[in-house]
Design a binder for these strands. Structure first.
Lengths: 216, 216, 216, 216
DNA sequence: CATGAATGAGGCTTCATTCAT
DNA sequence: CATGAATGAAGCCTCATTCAT
């Protein structure tokens, strides 16, 4: 786990990079075409290796996919959890905005968003992947937002809402935007939607919609 | 040999019913498994016919899918367009709420919602279907909501917003909810989300979020 | 066998015409697409009847084909045989030219030529058809020409040649021209070849090539 | 493990040989059954491999067919073109006879002749193959003969004829003979025709038929 | 470690033939 | 006689996975 300086010969360091290159290619292709429609041969070729090499690093197609999710979304969630825990002083509204924005910039605006789209679509055909994604991504991500809402309501910063339900409402637009961005709809759709403007509109709605009623 | 009211022989009535039976089976399976993963043989068997029979009624898999969409979503949009055009007297807020609720009850809460999920996921792999869906569903549905928003802003019932952008924001939660409902995520998720409560929460947000500022 | 005046009601006379209409459609389609590639449904539709009706008149696809050949080529050969037998006084060279020309005008230049092309190509896949065609068409046609050659050699009108072998040589260009005419080769080929000019060129070659050497 | 002279492992040499083995099997079966009636699984099995292996070497059925034609007929035409260009000193009559004979021995008498038969029969159903064959075989082969005829007429070795038309006449018997040989007609036909005798008869006809008139 | 040839199950589509009406 | 819906075998092509080298 700790390579002191780098005693390995160069070609062996190349070997160590292989999994990363494969994961990058796999992410790209899974996002473009979905899980079932992605051919492992294309993943291998995009990474510059042969088809068989994939099986040296990943047991099969599903394990490859899990590894891609771990490298991207799961990692990001871990960071967000840490940061949220360390933001005691921040206002709940600001923290919530920050988390939603961060979710957008680090996941939604990147290729990783395609993985979410993909899971929504294909989880039914691959129960093992569904369970993995649910445990590692959905539950952890939801818990993070729900915690912030609870905090805000408790502190009187938000009007009283059901935190779990509101979490789902908050998640919704971002998820949809992610899927929108990664769906191939020709013509206007793609150009019409400006993600940043969308987020501004959405966050404005959140701020006004969650604000406690000033006078009863 | 003599059917009192229906003059057609039983066998011919069967033929008239076949397309509907096939469309029902196809809807079920497309929604469950997606477009690519649905096998036509399964659709046929579910309708109680053989593989070849499908091709007597639908040219190929893509045409079958289009027929399913026409029979469900496209038809519903047509009705909504008519009703909206006939609701001159209604307040824009009420009309908007009605349309969103109706979208949920007639599409979102039915199997048809799965078609939306499916298109988001697989349109990239089937450009012809993407174009069809875009023209027949997305553009028509969006235009309907945008029109109501424009009306509301013009009448001073809504605060000034960009109608096209806000249409996308309004669409988002319902779409996400539809996909959520039709994604196979085991364990808690499915039970947690109560669609009606979600819609109430959402519509409340809309009403408060779109209300014109009372000039403080 | 002898319908005195025509006592049948009109719709029944129509029924008698059915086989002819089917044979006409079948000829057209067999010639266009070959035996295997012709769909019986297309034959039926072209004749304005349903698929099942075909089976009332012809046991199966192969019997339909045989009937087409009988209606066209076999009939023509029968006439030629009669006429040749009755042409005792004519010079062998003239008789030969006449037969070859007639072969061209009554078979080669008509759709029936396509049947010859078809048999050459597909007889291997349909041995029963091959045998039928060989007996009814090839052997009878060859015998006719061979007889004329023998007559010409015997009378000193032709130089001494092997009549059977020369029959094959004479047959060859016409058969090839028939196939040429019924093969879909784009661009120049089709326009370049003028069948009549071809036959003139060919018959000139025959006349000079078969003529007895004047001086040893 | 150590192959003395050939440094490649046996397994890799196998790969190099595969396309040739597949082309040989394909030639055999295409010639026997035609293009449409040949099943790729049979081609594969005849070469001792599985169905899928074919697709490692040839994109699809049509490309396999093109490869077969290139490996046989197209190659032969190329050689003939070179040799004809290098035969300046030879008499036109001799050169023509040589080319026709060679066409027979290197194509007509081999399995490749079946490809010609096949194209005549099925080109209408496969336009892409028709175009390929027309460009690569028919036009090049015709041009070769036409050139020789033009040369002979110009030098006074042949009587004046239309070179293009006469090319078609010359082609005809050989083509027909090729098709004859590769058509499955049972009984006498096959035994009756002796190709060499046919060619002798034909070439005799050509020589006498093209000779300039001795001015009577 | 790496290769890439080979496999074979599986899915879409076609069409001759049957048969209930 | 006539219909046309229904069948099911068969063919083309794809791709995850294996394994000899």
């Amino acid at each position: 786990m700790q390579a002191p300086t780098d005693t390995k010969p160069r070609w062996e360091r190349r070997k160590d990079a292989r999994p990363q290159e494969l994961l990058a290619s796999a992410l790209e292709l899974f996002v473009d075409r979905g899980f079932a429609a992605t051919r492992l041969e294309d993943v291998a070729r995009a990474a510059g290796v042969s088809k068989g090499t994939l099986y040296l690093y990943f047991e099969n197609k599903q394990e490859l996919f899990k590894a891609v999710v771990r490298e991207t979304i799961v990692q990001t969630i871990g960071q967000a959890e840490s940061d949220a825990a360390a933001a005691e002083g921040m206002s709940s509204c600001e923290l919530l905005r920050q988390m939603l924005r961060r979710w957008w910039t680090q996941v939604g605006a990147t290729k990783a968003a395609g993985l979410t789209k993909l899971m929504m679509a294909e989880s039914g055909n691959f129960p093992e992947l569904a369970q993995f994604y649910n445990e590692e991504v959905i539950e952890r991500g939801s818990a993070l937002l729900t915690g912030i809402l609870e905090r805000g309501v408790a502190r009187g910063e938000f009007r009283p809402v059901d935190p779990v339900m509101m979490t789902n409402v908050l998640i919704a637009p971002v998820m949809t935007l992610m899927m929108w961005k990664h769906s191939f709809f020709p013509c206007e759709t793609h150009d019409t939607i400006d993600a940043d403007a969308f987020m501004d509109t959405f966050l404005g709605l959140v701020q006004q919609g969650l604000a406690p009623q000033k006078n009863p």
